[in-house]
């Protein structure tokens, strides 16, 4: 491995970023991908890059599918779920996602809601969502879900999430609420990215109770993690 790539890999893993090294077996040439940027001596096609990203998101290593010559080594941390909004749904979603293997972080500057009593054993952050996400830096194995019921808090979180390599971005709210949100985010210059938002959030399981919505959100996050956005 080239020293420069090794340094990139070391820095990324030390900072807690999931990343990938692709090796061409014929000559040992390598490329490095940190979820946002590519570096190194191999020029991959867009389709190959997308396939590498899918393996990184899923935390999988091995031969790149449909390729004879490219080995992918993913250095993936445990998937993270960042929940914005210490709402009722979050009280179910946080423990469920923890049991499902996610590192869960709940962000809400409304300290009255984001209390340790309501969220035992969960990492709570009471900064504003934009400040918190700037610090937490969502990576390729991070999912971000906004559940605050308040655009003043959801919008800055979504703007930060859409500018990050997060593999999943979801937002609570009806189709009508989402149409207004899309208009605001488009005005904020994110028109090319709003399609990434899963809204209404979650798989359509038919349930309406907060615990059932939590299951539908967690299901969709897991589905996108392994099946990709095309699922």
């Amino acid at each position: 491995m080239k020293w420069v790539l090794y340094e990139r890999l070391r820095a990324a893993t030390a900072a807690g970023f999931s990343c990938t090294v692709v090796t061409r077996l014929a000559d040992g040439a390598q490329a490095f991908f940190d979820g946002a940027r590519w570096e190194g001596a191999i020029d991959l096609t867009d389709a190959q890059r997308a396939a590498v990203r899918r393996m990184l998101v899923a935390g999988r290593s091995g031969m790149l599918p449909a390729e004879q010559d490219l080995f992918v080594r993913s250095y993936a941390r445990a998937p993270r779920l960042i929940v914005v909004g210490a709402a009722h749904i979050s009280q179910f979603l946080a423990p469920m996602a923890t049991l499902a293997g996610f590192d869960v972080i709940v962000i809400d500057p409304r300290r009255a809601f984001a209390s340790a009593e309501r969220f035992p054993g969960v990492t709570l952050v009471d900064e504003w969502p934009d400040t918190a996400l700037e610090r937490l830096k969502p990576d390729a194995t991070t999912a971000v879900v906004t559940l605050t019921h308040d655009p003043k808090l959801d919008d800055p979180a979504l703007i930060a999430a859409l500018r990050s390599p997060a593999f999943y971005v979801g937002a609570l709210g009806s189709t009508r609420t989402h149409a207004k949100r899309v208009a605001r985010l488009t005005e904020a210059g994110l028109g090319d990215k709003v399609a990434r938002i899963h809204a209404p959030v979650g798989l359509d399981l038919g349930g309406r109770a907060p615990c059932e919505i939590a299951v539908s959100i967690l299901s969709q996050v897991i589905q996108v993690r392994y099946r990709g956005e095309a699922a």
């Binding site: 809400d108 500057p109 409304r110 300290r111 009255a112 504003w128 308040d150 003043k152 808090l153």
Partner: peptide, 9 residues
Amino acid sequence: IDNPLCGDC
């Protein structure tokens, strides 16, 4: 100063 009920600061 912040308002713990609505998050404004």
